[in-house]
């Protein structure tokens, strides 16, 4: 391996690394709760699921209601017309897809991030 080879390899690494770095800014589809409150289109929002019993409930019209919270403590009230996903309470983070209208987020879809601890059932 002579100096020219080393130079070419270093150049490849620098160019490749830089382009990936620049590109990485456009890779995140999830927006924060703060941003969703000023948006008017269909968005994907991520947040921690607030787990106290009272906040996850169905109303008389069979709408599911729950709250999401971000790192700063900002809350988002979500309503969802549909069945509660299986093991919903176990989710740590939740992504909801839908629109923010009248102080409420109307979710068309709920995705869950569950803690994958890869532990035997019943040991946690």
């Amino acid at each position: 391996m002579n100096k020219r080879h080393v130079f070419i390899l270093v150049l490849i690494v620098l160019v490749g690394g830089y382009s990936m770095y620049e590109f990485s800014a456009s890779l995140n589809p999830y927006i924060t709760i703060r941003k969703v409150k000023v948006s008017h289109s269909t968005v994907q929002v991520k947040g921690h699921l607030v787990k106290d019993e009272a906040s996850i409930m169905y109303d008389a019209q069979h709408m599911l209601h729950f709250n999401l919270m971000d790192e700063t403590g900002e809350l988002l009230a979500v309503s969802y017309a549909g069945e509660k996903p299986r093991d919903f309470e176990r989710a740590t983070d939740v992504v909801v897809i839908g629109k923010y209208e009248n102080q409420q987020f109307h979710a068309d879809k709920i995705l869950m991030k569950c803690p994958s601890k890869y532990q035997k059932e019943g040991t946690l």
Binding site: G16, G17, M20, Y21, S24, L27, N28, Y30, K46, D93, V95, L111, M112, K113, C114, P115, S116
Partner: peptide, 16 residues
């Protein structure tokens, strides 16, 4: 970058 850096940098539904 694609496999190790970027997915660890953003929030992802993928488990740790």
């Amino acid at each position: 970058f694609l496999v190790f850096v970027i997915p660890r940098y953003y929030f992802s539904l993928h488990p740790e």
